[in-house]
Every structure is written in C-alpha cells, then in structure tokens.
Design a protein around this nucleic acid. Structure first.
Length: 357
DNA sequence: TAGACGTGGTT
DNA sequence: TAACCAAGTCT
C-alpha cells in the first residue's frame, strides 16, 4: 500500500481493512447492547428508529419498555396511539413513533405481516429512509449495503479523505459508491455496526487517531495530519429565541388545571400543555399578561428554559383568574393529567408549578 | 433543497 | 453561554 493514496481500489487492502475491522469489532465492539442480542427485523427496526439522533444510553430503557409492551409488529399495528406516545414520552421527534405505527400497518397489510427483506423495499415503509433501510437489510437479512449514518460519513471521509459536503443530500451517492464495494460480503451487518462503534470510539467526532490505532494505517487524513478537517460539513442552523407566558388557571373547585392541545402538525403536535401566550421579547411579558389578566400573578422568578434543535424557549409561569369559558381550554385533574403522554417541556413546566404553588 | 423536528450531553 | 454533537426522515 502506498502512503497517502486511496486504497479503496486495492482488492488486497480492502480485504485487509475488512479483517482488521471485524477482528476489532469481535474483540472491542459493544456486543452487549440489547438490540444486538436478537437480529429479528422488528427488534432491529425499533432500535434503529429510537437511535436516530439519540444516544445509546438514552435509548436502552425505552427500548426494553417498548418491546415488553409491544413484542411483535402485529401488536404495534393495533396499539392505541396514547400508549405509543406514553412509551415514547421524553424521547423526542415524536413523528418517529407515529410513523412506526403506520409502517407496522403497512407490514401487516401490504407485506402479509412479514418485513420486506431488501433495503429498496424497506424504504417503502413510513419513517424508514436510506440509512434505516440499509441497517435493517444488512443486520437482519445480510444484504451487502452500507448503512450511511453520521458515523459512517465521518469514518470514511477521514479514512479516504472524501471531501464531499455531508450536509448536502447529493453527497450521499458519492459516499455510497465509494463505500459499497468495501462492505464485507459475508458479514455486512457486523461491518456496518463495527463502523458505528468505531465512529463512537477511536474515530469519534473530536478524537484524533493515534499511531497505535489498528486503523491508523488505513487513515489517509491521519497520515497527513488533516483528520479533524473531516468530515466537510457546511450547513449550520441558528437558534431562535422565543418568550412565553404559561398560564396556570385553576378550576373553581381548585382541583384541576387548564390545558390546551397543540396543533396537529408542527412542533410537539397534538400534545397537551398549559396555555401558552407568546411575546416578542422578555420585557413585554409582564405588561402583556397584565393587559389581558389584570390579577395575574407571576409564579416563577426564573423562567423555565427549554432548548429545541432550532429554538430556545423561555417560559414564565403566570397564575391567572379567568371569567367565562375559554373555548380551547380543558381542565384536567392531576390524576387524568398523569394518564396522558407528556413532552419534556410540559414535564418541566409542571415541576416548576409544583415547586412554586 | 433547506428547514423542521426533541432531547440530553459536551465543550 | 451558545454552539455543536448524537445510529435521520419528511416535506
């Protein structure tokens, strides 16, 4: 092998890389993960969806609970949405679980209860894109396809100094074409999982390769000291600040609080929260609330803050007295509230309320 | 295609 | 702290 040169065309070096990777995986891979104990497509699917943009440690308890409550795809297909959202509460990206039920119904109706066995067909299911399709196809059905996730982009961009911008969708094909011939034809699922483990350990985002690494000799960017320049990634989203008053309205008997249901589309779709009034700046909130509810009392000194990917919310809890009915408000007792699926945002608001009542 | 979509952890 | 990262997909 010539230093500083692309080895992906060399049959010998590719074979060497596969063996090095799989030997390392057998020795150092995270074989103890619950979803690696059973390669049944349903199990792999549930884990892959949960793991999207979500860390392993967070997922484990959710995964165990979900599989216990819904052991088969048939169970998922007919489950109540409220149960699904309960099982997902706090995990985020709630469209994932809604799409999972759609996909389960597709499997039952369009595929006679059997998961499709190829990446191409798996992508027909709701919520399954190119990454998840390839992961399931390779792990459960031994299809020889690369599962291109953030780890694989990073690992191969460094190994082969691929400069395509991973923020651009069109770059996926460039990576796919480069990596597909490298995937181990005998153990494609293990190859993909090994790359993920590699990407979270020896080749994590801010980790630099050492000369002792078994992958140093394959790493072209390590050889010329440009490792942390990869992957090339352009897009950046800036966070928007938003300011809210969360209205705490007790029913006449003092036993229940008012809630409103969020719109069916968009952020936290369909979840119930305290009624929220938005203001353009922090300073407007006090006067703004007082204008509508003259007897309003501020309940919190510091606002509750909640950060989404693209928005930062600051919410002040305000106790209000209302006269007449608010069409969109519903009063729930604590007992009924506990039964409903809740987002982390609402859990924070509720906790702040209990502390300050 | 760029932006929306949750949450928790790290720097 | 604000920004960025973590097993992406949908519109």
């Amino acid at each position: 092998m010539t230093a500083f040169s692309d080895w992906s065309e060399s049959r010998e070096t590719v074979a060497d890389f596969r063996k090095t990777l799989l030997d390392w995986y057998d020795e150092s891979g995270r074989t103890h993960l619950p979803w690696r104990e059973n390669t049944d497509a349903y199990h792999v699917w549930v884990s892959e969806i949960m793991l999207q943009q979500t860390q392993v440690e967070t997922v484990i308890p959710y995964y165990e609970r979900f599989l216990f409550a819904l052991p088969t795809v048939a169970d998922l297909a007919v489950a109540d949405e409220e149960l699904l959202l309960k099982l997902w509460s706090g995990l985020g990206y709630y469209s994932r679980v809604r799409n999972m039920q759609k996909a389960a119904q597709q499997v039952m109706i369009d595929f006679s209860g059997q998961f499709p066995r190829t990446a191409k067909d798996l992508q027909k299911l709701a919520g399954i894109g190119p990454y998840t399709a390839a992961a399931i196809a390779s792990i459960s059905f031994h299809e020889v396809v690369p599962a291109l996730d953030g780890n694989m982009f990073r690992v191969f961009s460094r190994l082969l100094k691929i400069t395509a911008d991973i923020a651009l969708p069109k770059s996926r094909q460039i990576f796919y074409d480069k990596i597909a011939p490298i995937v181990d034809p005998v153990r494609p699922g293990d190859f993909n999982q090994a790359i993920m483990d590699l990407g979270t350990s020896l080749m994590a985002a801010k980790t630099k390769t050492t000369a002792e690494s078994p992958f140093a000799r394959f790493n072209l960017s390590f050889k010329d000291g440009t490792e942390l320049d990869f992957p090339v990634k352009s897009k950046k989203v800036k966070q928007v600040q938003r300011f809210y008053a969360a209205l705490v309205s007790e029913s006449d008997d003092g036993a229940r609080f008012a809630y409103t249901q969020r719109p069916t589309t968009g952020l936290l779709a369909d979840f119930w929260t305290f009624p929220l009034l938005e203001f353009t700046s922090w300073d407007d909130i006090y006067e703004g609330v007082a204008a509508i509810y003259p007897t309003a009392q501020q309940l919190t000194i510091k606002p509750v803050t909640h950060i989404f990917t693209h928005q930062k919310w600051q919410i002040m809890l305000v106790k209000v007295e209302t006269h007449g009915s608010h069409k969109n408000w519903t009063y729930f007792s604590d007992e009924d509230y506990e039964k409903m699926p809740q987002t982390t945002l609402q859990v924070k608001l509720q906790a702040a309320l209990k502390e300050n009542l």
